[in-house]
């Protein structure tokens, strides 16, 4: 199944938010790229991102001739009014020659199995499957081959899930960090009307506002003040879970610091846990970002494949990734128990 027959071990899955990013990932060592269409059918529905038919054909051609697989995400939840649009997205994936579909919605999986029975299915992180019983459900009903695990499990839990899973397990290795279980977070629609589930958008750009005030720079999502920054303080994109609010008398990052996930140093543990693939988050990021991150992770996974026991993360890799990360710090996230 793995692309790049000469490569062994964990597969590297890189984000392709547009054609230049896809090419950067392919050229710098991705085993697979994942992408979506320019609408609400995928979980990175942002202006200017994703693929139209022409670029889709070009991107898939570019990847395939270089032995890199293309995973096609239709990973939001269609409602009755949008059903035809979502099934059309599945059909476009089927017609495109992509190597697998990444789905979250049960109805859409049922549709894909009927209409495109040969198309391998991956379970999106948005499906929120955190345990082997849930994974069995999707494996038994739809023949799902791989599942992306939500970023809520510790390393030990990933190990257990993976050992007991009927399907391959993929985990996030690097990028923005959802503190909430994916597919089960309505904070964005609560404030701004659109959520990852319904529209593929967390904190939609049109609901974001910035304002200089005597109290400092204010960021808002919809009507909600998400944060207030002192002069010289770095301001982050106003996602609800990364804002500063008041509890009792204290103002602090109530849900999560604006940190991002970096598991480079945990690679040997993730390999020992039996994960089949590492996913790099960031379809909303630039081609330059994708190039740098792909390069570092390719080197790391190659080194890991040569010698799992003696693996050490190169300080230079870490420095490169730190420079690319959102916010001021990186974290092992849920994989590291104390974070929880």
């Amino acid at each position: 199944m793995r692309a790049g027959a000469n490569r062994q071990g964990i597969e590297l899955i890189c984000p392709a938010g547009n054609l230049p990013a896809l090419k950067a990932a392919v050229d710098h060592g991705a085993d697979a790229v994942y992408l979506g269409l320019q609408d609400a059918t995928n979980a990175r529905h942002f202006p200017g991102l994703n693929f139209d038919d022409k670029r889709l054909a070009e991107g898939i051609g570019y990847a395939r001739t270089r032995g890199v697989r293309v995973l096609f995400a239709v990973n939001t939840y269609p409602q009755p009014a949008g059903w035809a649009q979502w099934t059309r997205a599945v059909d476009r994936a089927g017609e495109s020659g992509a190597d697998a579909l990444i789905l979250a919605d049960i109805g859409l999986m049922d549709y894909a199995c009927t209409r495109w029975p040969q198309m391998p299915l991956h379970l999106s992180v948005q499906a929120s499957a955190t345990n082997p019983e849930a994974l069995r459900f999707y494996s038994e009903h739809f023949g799902v081959r791989r599942a992306v695990l939500p970023r809520v499990l510790s390393l030990q839990q990933i190990e257990r899930v993976s050992a007991d899973s009927p399907v391959e397990v993929e985990v996030f290795g690097f990028g923005s960090l959802c503190v909430m279980a994916e597919g089960r977070c309505l904070l964005s629609s609560y404030v701004a009307g659109q959520s990852p589930n319904t529209c593929g958008a967390c904190s939609p750009a049109q609901a974001v506002a910035w304002r200089e005030t005597p109290q400092g720079l204010e960021s808002r999502l919809g009507r909600v003040l998400t944060d207030r920054y002192a002069a010289g303080e770095a301001a982050g994109y106003p996602t609800i879970c990364k804002g500063r609010y008041r509890v009792g008398g204290r103002t602090y990052y109530t849900l999560e610091e604006p940190s991002s996930l970096n598991t480079l140093q945990l690679l040997p543990e993730l390999a020992a846990a039996g994960v089949a693939a590492i996913k790099i988050e960031g379809r909303q990021r630039s081609a330059a970002y994708v190039r740098e991150v792909t390069r570092v992770w390719r080197s790391a996974l190659d080194r890991l494949a040569r010698d799992e026991i003696a693996f050490r993360a190169d300080p230079q890799w870490q420095a490169t990734l730190d420079g690319l990360s959102e916010g001021v710090q990186t974290t092992f996230g849920p994989y590291h128990r104390p974070w929880q």
């Binding site: 049960i106 109805g107 082997p132 319904t198």
Partner: peptide
């Protein structure tokens, strides 16, 4: 959770789903 759906269905226990189970369409 879908794990609970599988376990209940598998043992013939009648089940309902709560609001955190993502049912967004008739299919």
């Amino acid at each position: 959770d879908l794990g609970a759906v599988r376990l209940a269905a598998g043992s013939g226990t009648p089940f309902v789903t709560g609001p955190a189970v993502n049912i967004y369409n008739p299919r």
